[in-house]
Structure formats: structure tokens, C-alpha cells
Design a protein around this nucleic acid. Structure first.
Lengths: 347, 347
DNA sequence: ACTTGGCACTCGTCAATCGAGAGTGCCAGA
DNA sequence: TCTGGCACTCTCGATTGACGAGTGCCAAGT
């Protein structure tokens, strides 16, 4: 009852099933993989694997299919993340090279991931709360309104419009805006968000009386922008790949698409990563808490400039997916995007 | 051979088919609609309608289904765009009210449209080329780099980073940036894009020699941003609705999803509108040039601040859709979004 | 000139049936 | 512990036949 061989059998089952998407039987198995034993022996092993809950027979006399637990064992113990071939690496760098701004980087990344893995790609925008303020600009709009432009170190830009309730076009108004602008940037530029938020609040208290109301308005709008959870955003691509995967999959495609439109839950899901930032996280089928995504697996990884993870990206597909390939793609793309953000950071 | 009655029959067929999604026969028709004639008479009319190419029988003895041409006649001559009920109007305004910035407006709009019509919603970002420049800000980044932030009257913000090749942190550098900033805004603020682009080019020629190189760099990055076609963007929502529509529809869902990911062609499609800016445009099935979308209809309309249309939005669904309802929703949302942009424009 | 009821005919759908094939579990022997 | 053999089970696809919905056409009525 060699445990090793049993795991070999499991690995073979997973590989065959991923390739053919049909239950795999003992005979086909010994034909395609040269495990040095006969079909009958394999059958005994399969019976044991089934007892352990790693594989499962859809009905009496059909082949076996891996269970979620089976995939889990496969991912954890039986597969090596195979490095991408040079062609793929080149494709990644070429594709991401030409990005002009953050939106463009995210957009290209998600499309790239989708086409590399032929599955649904998910990319989270660099989170605001883990970022630092690069610069804050105030632009008068109309007579009394002020547009606040918040530029983040990741390249992201946020904007708000507030009504200051006083004229900004006369000399006094212009001076006021200039004063507030320089004070704000003095305390907030280059500072992490949470710290910036507190400092800005103090700024209001210290402001000379005539400027207080306007400062207050600006700071409160900024505070909104700094904490607002809504601002966590995700971008998707490759939904069309869902339709191609398997033949019974189309039935479950509706709930999946619905779940994908719930960006909030999707974000929560992406946020849950393992401890090691440099590791690919895999959630398989029912390990996944979100209703509608329980027939799918999510392969994800954090990315970000420097050592800091500012956001996550990943790939979602049927539990029957090519895990080694998918994990390799996700890791390669995440690393490359991090590099790009790094470069943009210093420039 | 009353032509009127024939059209009544067509209308009844369309309505029934939209509701049941099954071919409709003569008997069911006279039962559900009180046209004062017998089933046999209706059959004769149906034979004529089929000759005219407005309806079609999937097989010898099944009911009839409208053709694309049939829907066209229905839309053009047989349906009144029914105004939304007050509840729906209220829902629209409430849902769009709380938007904090342009991204948010677009995001909410596309979700709203999708849930109102229970179909796939498509919203184009306000086009850059038809907009005016509101303000241009220059922010030094690192020692020699400059971030250019372009703020558009629609609320959209674009950014580029350029390397000026000279120090910007010393007094001279700061003065240079300030000078360029004020010169640029002097000629470009409040000006339509195309005009701004030409004026900016002249600005380089007129710049004093020592500033020329830097001005040149800034202007060329701006020129990029002003014309770049890539910057036309669309946002989608409600893809999950595709899976719900009908039972045979799932088969065609793959190509549709693929077509929806081709944002470029989608944009071209959205751009093709009728002449009257205040009219809803409907493209039915094969009238639609895009492969993969030929089993769908697109209901779209322009929107924008003031009289100018700056972009389009619309809804995509199976040719068998509730046209009056969809057209009403699209029109109402387009108008409301225009109002919001108007308000943001003046504030 | 239309409209209507009647009737034969055409197909698609559904359920039941049957055979083939794949795969299993178990047993006895090496 | 492995192997070959064998009986058994179950799904899948094709085939068949009854059924029903719907049509087209015709002859009679208004």
C-alpha cells in the first residue's frame, strides 16, 4: 500500500481530468502514464483515494474525478510551479511596456492575465489606504467652487469638488487658495494616508480664523477621499472564457457572472491572502466562501511597489484548471507589475 | 386585406414572443389579444406577413417568430416609448444623486441601466476630443520628472509623467515650472481640445530659448493625451443578465461576451448614432455590423453636458427584448446623466 | 371580396426501450 | 502485494411510436 504510488495516481488523475474534462478510468490511466503497475492495482489505489475523500465517482461505473480536497493535495504536494518559457516572459514585458498611466497599466494587466490563462482575470486597483500622498492640488472652478485633486504615489488620481461658499476669483480668494494649498502639501505630501488624515485634521484647528471654514471644507472632502471604501476598485477581463470552459459549466455561468459583478465581495476575497507576500494563494472550490463561486478556484497574489503589497490580482476559473500553469502566470505577472509600479514610483 | 390588422397581428406576435420567448401560434394569439377575428383569419395574415419577411416559422408546424425586419417595423411604427412611472424616475435620481466624481457617475450609471433593463449596459466615458480643457497642473516628481495633470470640463482627469532632463528642485527650476504652468493655462484653459492642441504647439515656438526644451516635453505629452484614441473608454455591467435570457441564448453567449471585450469595436458601434441627438437609436440583430452581436440588439443614445453630445450609453440584449421599456429607460437615464454633468460643469 | 370552420398533414417533443461500452469491485492465484 | 479474470452496474446514444401543436387549403357563409 505504497502511499507514494497512490499520490502518483492522484496526480495522474488530476492531469488527465484537466486535459480531457472527462472522468478518468483505471485503464486509460495505465495507458497514458507509465506507472509500472496494472489497471487492477490502480483500481485498488483509487478505492483508497476515494475513501480518503480525494477523488469521487460521479456514478457507479464511471471514471473518477478529483474532489476539491484532491485538488488541494495536488496543489500543495504534487505540483511544481513551472517557470514560464522565455517566449511568454517576453510577451508579458512587451505587453505591459507601453502603458502610459496607472489606468493603462491595470487595463493591460488584466487583459494580459486573461489571455495568458484563458480564464477570468481580476485586478484590484492599488489601494488608497496603504498608499502615500504625493501631491494635492486645488483648482478653482467657477466663482466659489474648488476642485481638489489628490495624487497618490501609485499614480492614482482622485478628485472632489467642494463649494467653499466664498469668492475665490478676487485677489483675496486667490491668496487663500494658495495658502491652503501650500499648508496642505506641507503636512501631507509624501505621507501615508492614515497619518495624512490625522495631520490634516490638526491643520484645521491651527488655521487662522478667517481661513478656517474653507480649510475645513477642503480637509473634510479630502478625508472622505482618503478613507472612502467605495474607492477600492477591481477590473475584470476574460469573462468570455467562462463560456468556453467545459460543457456543463455553462449552466453555472449565470451565478458566476453575478458573483463577479459584486465588486465588494470580490474585493474582500482578493484581500484574503496567505502570510507570505511572495507566494501564490489558491482557493479551491468550496474553500471559497462566496456563493456562486463554489465551483470555481481563485489563484491570486499580492503586488505592489517596494516590499509593500498595495493590492492583489488573480485569476478565476473552474476548479478543473491547469494549476501549475495558472499559478506560474499569476506569479510572473504580479512580479512584473510590481516592477513597473516601482519604476513609476521613483520616476 | 386590411393592412392595419396585419400590423396589429405583428404587434401582438412581437409582444407575446417577447413575453413567452416561444413561437406564437394563431390560436394562442386570438385568445390573448381580442382582435375581433378568428384564428383562421389570423393565419392568413400571418402567411402574408411571412411573405413580407416580417415573421418566420422555425419549422413547418411551429408558431411564428418575428424577424429582425419585423422588430424594425414594430419599433418604428407600432410602439410608443412609454414614459417611466414615477417610482422608476425617483429610483434613477436617487441612485445617481450621491455620486462623488466622474468615475462614480459612470459606475453608478452603468449599474443602474443594467438593473433597470435587466440587460447588459454599456456606458462610454465622456470623450476627450469633444471636451474642453479646464485646467492643467504640473507637479514635480523626484528631481527631474514632472507629472502633468489634465483636468477636463467633464470632470475627467488624465495624467502623464515626463522626464524634463533638468533639475526642477532648485529655485530656477521652480520658476520654470511656474512659468510654463501659467503660460499653458493661459492659452488652453476653457478651450476645446482641438484648439488647445494647436495653441499649445504655437506656445513651444514662442517660448524663450532656455525654456524651450522643457516646454516642448510638456506640450508633446499633453498632445498625446489630447488625441490619444486609446483614451476612449467604456464600462460594462450586467453581463450576468445574458445567462438568464432565454434558454437557447446561452449557446450564443460566448461570442457575445467576446465581442463585449473588444472595447474598440464597441466604441465604434456606440459612436454611430442617428442625426437627432435627442432620439434613441436602435440597432436590431443583423443591422449590427459586429460579428458575434448579430443575435442582439443595441439601444443607445448620446448624452452630454449642454447641447453637445460628449459620449453615448446604451443597452445590449437579445433581439427579443422589450423595446418600449428599454428605450424608455435608456432615454431617461441619458437625460438624467446629462443633467448631472451639466450641474458639475457649472459648479 | 373577406372571413370562417373544418380537416388532412407535417413536424418536433417526450417517454420508453434497447444495446453497446466503459468501468468497477471482488476473488482467487501468483 | 500485485495481477488477471469475470460478473455486474450504469450512462449514453440511437430508435421508435404516440401525441399535440400548428399550419395550409378548401368550401361555404356573409
Amino acid at each position: 500500500m505504497s502511499e507514494d504510488r497512490r499520490l502518483m495516481v492522484l496526480r495522474a488523475i488530476v492531469q488527465d481530468y484537466v486535459q480531457t474534462s472527462e472522468p478518468v478510468g483505471s485503464k486509460a490511466l495505465v495507458e497514458r502514464h507509465h506507472l509500472g503497475v496494472s489497471a487492477a492495482t490502480v483500481r485498488n489505489d483509487m478505492a483508497l483515494l476515494e475513501e480518503e475523500g480525494l477523488i469521487h465517482a460521479p456514478h457507479t461505473s464511471a471514471g473518477r474525478v478529483p474532489t476539491d480536497a484532491g485538488y488541494r493535495v495536488f496543489v500543495d504536494r504534487l505540483s511544481a510551479v513551472k517557470p514560464l518559457n522565455p517566449g511568454e516572459r517576453r510577451a508579458i514585458s512587451q505587453f505591459l511596456e507601453g502603458a502610459v498611466d496607472l489606468d493603462d497599466v491595470v487595463d493591460r494587466t488584466v487583459r494580459l492575465l486573461a489571455s495568458l490563462t484563458r480564464q477570468v482575470a481580476v485586478v484590484q486597483y492599488p489601494s488608497l489606504t496603504r498608499s502615500t500622498v504625493r501631491h494635492i492640488e486645488l483648482v478653482p472652478i467657477g466663482a466659489t467652487h474648488l476642485m481638489i485633486v489628490l495624487i497618490v504615489n501609485t499614480g492614482r488620481v482622485e478628485q472632489r469638488v467642494v463649494d467653499t461658499g466664498r469668492s475665490l476669483v478676487d485677489a483675496e480668494g486667490e491668496a487663500l487658495v494658495a495658502a491652503i494649498r501650500s499648508r496642505i502639501n506641507e503636512v501631507a505630501a509624501g505621507v501615508p494616508f492614515t497619518l495624512a488624515a490625522t495631520r490634516l485634521r490638526h491643520l484645521v484647528e491651527d488655521a487662522p480664523e478667517p481661513d478656517k471654514a474653507t480649510t475645513e471644507a477642503v480637509v473634510s472632502a479630502l478625508g472622505d477621499a482618503l478613507v472612502e471604501e467605495r474607492e477600492e476598485r477591481v477590473v475584470l477581463a476574460g469573462q468570455a472564457n467562462l463560456a468556453r470552459a467545459g460543457t456543463d459549466f455553462p449552466r453555472t455561468i449565470g451565478p458566476i457572472l453575478e458573483a463577479l459583478e459584486e465588486h465588494v465581495t470580490l474585493l474582500r476575497l482578493l484581500g484574503q491572502l496567505g502570510d507570505d507576500p511572495d507566494l501564490v494563494s489558491v482557493r479551491i472550490g468550496s474553500e471559497n466562501p462566496v456563493t456562486g463561486l463554489q465551483s470555481t478556484s481563485l489563484v491570486s497574489m499580492g503586488y505592489g511597489s517596494g516590499a509593500e503589497r498595495v493590492a492583489s490580482l488573480g485569476v478565476l476559473g473552474p476548479t478543473r484548471m491547469d494549476y501549475p500553469m495558472t499559478m506560474a502566470s499569476v506569479r510572473a505577472v504580479a512580479r512584473y507589475v510590481s516592477e513597473i509600479l516601482d519604476a513609476n514610483q521613483t520616476t
